[in-house]
């Protein structure tokens, strides 16, 4: 073997070894600095300063902050955290650096407004964020939609929702749904049908994976709520007809109060309790349901202790 060949072999082995070692070490460093990218937010909270620091590359900087916001939420959500202190700041910075970053407004509406652990529980901040977005993108109906959505779902402020949907429906090229939603708000706000329509629209008008998953979870929950409501009504009808509680779903079908035995979106049958209540079989699989829960039900405990 010549000296040159020896050098080649040693250098190659060293290269591969050190490369593997560097990746392992990097993972350790990453573990030690899970929230490290957010340190900056603690020091520089002013979007104006950041704008200056980004040396004219605001678009790129906005994308970076947007990624940080999504990661921050994702990690916190995974820990079932009840505190999302930095989420509003991160979104604010992203959108001020790039006011046309629509996905950031959408994300804000979906995750900033709802109560923990599903969101940061800051509907006021979310409304501020969307209003800022509307000022900068007055011709995008999506933003009015998000605004109405927050008023309707999180604030239960139907007048506010009506106004938002109406403003949005006047925008050129607005989705026809906007007029419909405005009408629904005016007629009978608070119905399952309206909520379904809202979540369906959310699902259809976004590409963001996390937002879509969230919309599907809500749609599934609405389905369960509707099923439970219908079944509960059928139990009452059965009682009026026969004078006692139904022993089983098949008895209810025989009595003609329901047409078939209903199943939840996962294909499991509902439970008919001896006291006539309807319960869902796997409450843990439906995080947003309000009906069909066993008495005293608490959502699953976080797998990790919250870090803050």
């Amino acid at each position: 073997m010549t000296a040159s060949q020896r050098t080649t072999i040693v250098a190659s082995l060293l290269l591969v070894g050190c490369m593997l070692a560097s990746v392992v070490l990097l993972r350790r460093v990453d573990q030690m600095r899970t929230m490290a990218t957010l340190d900056e937010v603690l020091y520089i909270t002013s979007p104006k300063t950041l704008k200056r620091l980004s040396l004219g590359y605001e678009g790129l900087m906005a994308d970076i902050y947007w990624t940080r916001a999504v990661q921050y939420f994702g990690r916190k959500h995974h820990q079932h955290s009840k505190h999302y202190d930095l989420l509003a700041t991160l979104l604010e910075i992203s959108t001020q650096l790039d006011p046309q970053l629509l996905v950031a407004y959408q994300f804000g509406a979906t995750f900033l407004a709802p109560q923990p652990p599903n969101g940061a529980g800051m509907p006021e901040k979310a409304i501020q964020l969307i209003e800022y977005g509307i000022r900068n993108n007055p011709n995008d109906w999506h933003l009015y939609y998000e605004l109405g959505f927050i008023y309707y779902t999180d604030k239960k402020d139907y007048a506010g929702a009506l106004e938002a949907f109406e403003r949005g429906s006047r925008v050129p090229d607005a989705h026809p749904f906007m007029k419909l939603l405005a009408a629904q708000m005016a007629q009978h706000a608070g119905e399952l049908q309206t909520a379904r329509m809202l979540w369906l629209t959310t699902y259809q008008t976004t590409q963001d994976k996390q937002i879509r998953a969230n919309a599907i979870a809500h749609l599934r929950a609405l389905q369960v709520d509707e099923d439970v409501t219908n079944l509960q009504r059928a139990v009452t009808q059965y009682g009026e007809k026969t004078g006692h509680l139904p022993p089983s779903f098949s008895a209810m079908v025989a009595a003609g109060v329901v047409s078939r035995i209903p199943v939840d979106p996962d294909g499991h049958a509902y439970k008919l309790m001896p006291d006539g209540r309807i319960e869902v079989r796997m409450p843990d699989d439906f995080p947003f349901i309000e009906k069909g829960l066993p008495p005293g039900y608490t959502p699953p405990q976080p797998k990790l202790p919250p870090s803050d």
Binding site: T8, A11, S12, L14, L15, C18, L25, R28, V29
Partner: peptide, 24 residues
């Protein structure tokens, strides 16, 4: 500690690459 080890191994990787290219 880990940053030191990381920087040294990463520099070693780049240096080995330089040696391998330069050698041939």
């Amino acid at each position: 500690l880990y940053n030191t080890a990381y920087a040294l191994t990463y520099a070693a990787v780049a240096l080995c690459g330089a040696v391998l290219i330069f050698e041939h």
